[in-house]
Design a protein around this nucleic acid. Sequence first.
DNA 1: CATGTTTCCTGACAGC
DNA 2: TGCTGTCAGGAAACAT
Length: 289
Amino acid sequence: MPELPEVETIARGLAKRVTGDVIESVWLGSKPQTLKSPAAEIAATLENKRVAGVRRVGKHLVVDLQDAGKAGSRRPKTARKGKAGVSAPSGQEAQWIVHLGMTGRMLVCEPGAEIAKHTHAIAKLASGRELRFVDPRRFGRLSVGHGFKAAGYEPLEVELDRFVGLFRRRKTPIKSALLNQKLLSGVGNIYADESLFRARIRPRRRAASLTKEDLQRLYLALQEVLREAIELGGSSISDYVSADGEEGFFQLQHRVYGREGEKCLVCKMPIKRVVIAGRGSHYCPTCQK
DNA sequence: CATGTTTCCTGACAGC
DNA sequence: TGCTGTCAGGAAACAT
């Protein structure tokens, strides 16, 4: 399941491979719930646009688009900021926003490559290649817009004081709070469990009950685990692969996630699994308090 | 408002 | 073999 490190890996791979290419035409499948914007609007926004870059925002992929226009190599200088009325809708700041959900993939395919089952969108590129969105479980979503912003803070950018403030007076379990995208954007089930283990905090602890020291450990643990995971190209669980089709390797570093009943790597006690906020939550009953 | 629960969806897997 | 049932989970919708 793509969380922050996986989406970061995918975004980097896509940026490397399709930046500068031009979307010539778009095909969209007929599954309506996959599209958050009307199909015609998505197609119109993407077609004849140059890919200016691909970034990760929270768990979203943002494909920045600019008018492909006539003059090929012209590079429109970015937003003169300041004065009002600058939100030029001429397209150069349009964005294609992709949420991969559980099983979504964005693949760069060579011309003529077989079309995988559950392909919901295909963007034909001027290079002849295709950018394809494939998502068996259909939890992924496509939309278009401008100036996309994540609802919460980026875990790798938020300052400690703000991080601590997010959890004050919150009665919900810390695990639920970590998964709440309006607080932090990008943390999913794997990295919530892994960071709580490293911070030695039980997932069911009420967020408000954590001391400043607890939260500082959690802050450092979360950033550490996310950075290490990005370094290893993310966790390949079930069907995640990067834009290059490469598997990540962080799953080999998981200390609690998916290890129910196995020995804790620190104290040798069996890892427990409980359900919190509807998600399997893994922890060591002795190491985590 | 805050928090908990249900829903969507298919593939993988266990058990018979 | 092939069927059935269960489980996985991000986030929106709905309920409390």
